[in-house]
Each structure stands twice: as C-alpha cells, then as structure tokens.
Design a protein around this nucleic acid. Structure first.
Lengths: 229, 229
DNA sequence: CGCGTTTCGATAGTAATACTTTCATAAAAA
DNA sequence: TTTTTATGAAAGTATTACTATCGAAACGCG
C-alpha cells in the first residue's frame, strides 16, 4: 500500500494557481524547492526571486504558475489538507465504531507523520512544519472572503465537515458539532507550535515522546460528548 | 468606576518599543492612529509611511518609537492582553466559587467589549478586531524565540497562567490545566474570526446575538473538569 | 519532416517598501 | 542661559513585488 500510494494525486482548487505546477517538471521542482525555502526562511523572508535563483530559472517563470507567494502558500496548505484527508480516509476505513473512528482521526491530525502515506515530490515533514508555523496566515488576510468564495480553502473545510459528521454519529444531540470539529483541527496544529516555542504554556511535549496533543483532544472531545448523552 | 478607570496605565514590556509611545503626545497619537489604520488596511498593507502622513509627521519620527511595524503590532496586542487582564481581575474579584470565576473569565475573553472598562486613548472595539484578525502573526515568525525571551508576550502568558490557577482550583487532578487554558484563550478569538468569515464551520454567530463562544467554551471546560472529579 | 503553438529564459523596468543617515531647529530640562 | 532632547525635513539605499517584451527551445500534430 505504501508504495502503491507514493504518487497519489492530491486535488487542489484550480483558482489557487495560474498553471498547474504538477503538470510540468519545473512546476514540480518549484513545489519541492519552495517547501524547503519557506520552511527555512519563513513566508515573510521567502521571495520568488530567491526561489527562482535556487531553481536556476527566473521570476517570470514562477509568476506563470502563481500570482504571488501568498497563493503558493495557499497551494501548499491546500495540498496538505487534501493529503491529510486521504490519510484519514485510509486510517479510518473499516472502523465501525464512530468513537474509535474519531479517536483515530484526532491521532492523524495531531501526528500526521505517523501515517504510512508518503509522496515522491513533497517532503511531508517539512510541509507539516510549514502548516504548523504558517497556516493561519493563509486566511488572516483582508482578501479572505473573496478567496474563500473561489474555493481556496475547500480542502480544509472538507476535513472539518468529515469530523462534524463523525461527531454527529457519536452524539446527534450535541449542539456544537461544528465548533468542536473546528476546535480539534485548529488546536491540533496550534498546540504543537506552542509546545515548541512556549513550552510553559502547555503540558504537551514538543517531540512525539510524552503526552501528545491527541491524548488531550481525545479526552476533551469524548468527555464532552459522553456527558451529553 | 467606569470613569475612574478611563486612564489606567497598561504595562507593556519595554523591549517592545524604542521610546515609550505613551510618554509623548505624538506617541499617543501614533497608537491611536495606528489602530485605525491597521484595522482598516490589515498589517500587511499598513506602512509607517502611511501612518506618518496621516499624523502629519515623517517616518523618522515613528522609527524613533518602534523598530518596525511588527513591534508596533506586538505593542498593541500586549496592550490588549494587559487591558484584558485588568478587566478579568475586576470582573472576577469577590467571586469565591472558582467554577463561577472561570465562567466569568471565559465570558470576558469571549466578549471583552461587554465589560465596562474603557480607555481615552485606545479604541477598544477596533483594537479587539485587530486582535481577532492579526494576533497570530505576532508570534508566528522566525524571531519568536528571541522575542519571547525578552518579554514580548508576557502579558499574554499572564492571562494563561491566571486561568491555569483557576482550573487547578476547580480540579487539581486534571492533567491538562495549561493546555486547556491555552485552548480557551486561543479558541475564544479564533472562533470569532471563523464566525465572521467561515460561518459554515461553526455554530457561533458573528454578532453578539445567538450562541456565543462563551457558551461553547464553558460547556467544553466544565464538562471536562466535572468528569474528572 | 516541418509548422505552429506553447513554454521558458533573459532582460529591463517600475512603484513601493523598509529602512538609515544627516542635519537643522524647536522645545524642554538643568 | 545653556544644554540636552525631540522632532521634522530631505535624501539615499537595497530589496520587494511585480509587469512587459522578446527570442529561442521544445512539443504536438498533420
């Protein structure tokens, strides 16, 4: 399975790019190299000029694929959410008990690298760290409503919806299924950031060792739902 | 009380600014005007040049107060967290039951403008909206560790610690007091953003009407703690 | 094989940003 | 009154975030 899935295609909304970067060699290199650079420099210090130089090409080529670096970031994040949904589907398939399925989903979101799914082009470890450090910047902009309308965030929203349904299966009378689902997804990534940079603010340890986000979230969610029955 | 407190001084860590903006007339105008502009333009499109023009001064003057616009943003957010702690202290004083105190704290964080505390210089409504839309950008940077060490985020951390203690009073055996406190503070602001821009992802309604964040968080937290007893 | 189209690379250019420096002057403090 | 401090004005720099143009290479198709 692992090998079978090394080349799955992740669907990314077509409005995010000008030309599909997965459709050409240089586009793929662009994705690969940009992940390395954004990870290293952060999105603020990252520029198309630097990316072009690293690729041995010019800015004009990159601008043919992405309108600007913000859209490139949105692309990478959308790719991540698309990939994560894939992983969640694989991990939860054939699990009948909805509570157990939710538990597995939370574990996937909290520790996505534990999954078996790998990709030839995309370095998932680096991409995941970009998600941790940069993802809120993708929607905390003045253009969020326009971008949302044309589908920039559909992959993210699909994951949320999936969790909402799962919660409703467990307890259809719980009145905050959506809010809770959003809390799960948001917290999973945030707490990892805080664990790394503000360790005093959380019991969660930065590396996999010790108490992880998944334990906290599972506890939080199941107690919340059990109590409502 | 309301009038008595119109001019409280909020302590902001001195490393955030080069020269205390509250110490001079132009510094105060800078704070006031920057809140209006950042609210309107967003931090990305906001520049010191624009701020200088609006104030009838020059960039050099502004650079004498703040190293860059990032630090100005950090200043405003630190001011907010300092102010919010003040409000929480006032609202929860004389409440003996820790569960009720936590409930009031959650309400304050989720709906800070409902409090009575106002300020002459700072437009709290606009500042709060900046907090909602921009605050993660203050720490999601490559410089977060250095800035954290010199005290950029102490006001934020003090609020978290206060909630941690409150949680421990309610249930000293709950193993995730810090993580839960952080979740409360983070969720309160985030869900408001999502309610405004991604209404399908949450049951919370954007305006004060209907179900608010406070109801969700209170439910979440109290169930979590009650169940642990 | 050849022709047209798409794609890319190279060059150049522009307006704006994020500062830094210097200097003169006005206001406040000693 | 003298000295320090704060501001304003002007100029300059490196970088960013694009846009436009053009020639060459590669590719797809008949």
């Amino acid at each position: 399975m692992q090998d079978l899935l090394r080349n799955i295609q992740i669907r990314v909304n077509e409005h995010i790019y000008l030309k599909d970067p997965e459709s050409s060699e240089i586009g793929r290199k662009m994705l690969n190299e940009s992940i390395g650079m954004i990870h290293e420099l952060g999105i603020e210090a990252f520029t198309f000029k630097k990316l072009a130089t690293a690729l041995g090409t010019t800015e004009s080529t990159i601008y043919r694929y992405f309108e600007n670096k913000h859209n490139l970031l949105v692309y990478l994040l959308a790719w991540y959410w698309g990939w994560l949904e894939y992983e969640i589907v694989l991990i939860t398939m054939n699990i009948e008990d909805p509570a157990e399925r939710l538990q597995k989903t939370i574990e996937s979101i909290s520790d996505p690298l534990k999954g078996q799914l790998r990709h030839d082009l995309i370095d998932l470890k680096l991409l995941y760290e970009i998600v941790i450090a940069e993802s809120p910047k993708s929607f905390l902009t003045k253009e969020v409503d326009v971008e949302n309308e044309i589908g920039f965030f559909v992959n993210y929203k699909r994951i949320c919806e999936r969790i909402v349904k799962n919660i409703e299966e467990i307890d259809s009378s719980y009145p905050f299924a959506r809010t809770l689902a959003l809390t799960i997804v948001q917290c999973a990534n945030q707490h990892r950031f805080f664990a790394m940079h503000f360790p005093n603010l959380t019991e969660i340890s930065p590396q996999g060792t010790g108490t992880g986000t998944a334990v906290f979230l599972t506890d939080l969610v199941l107690k919340s739902l059990q109590n409502n029955k």
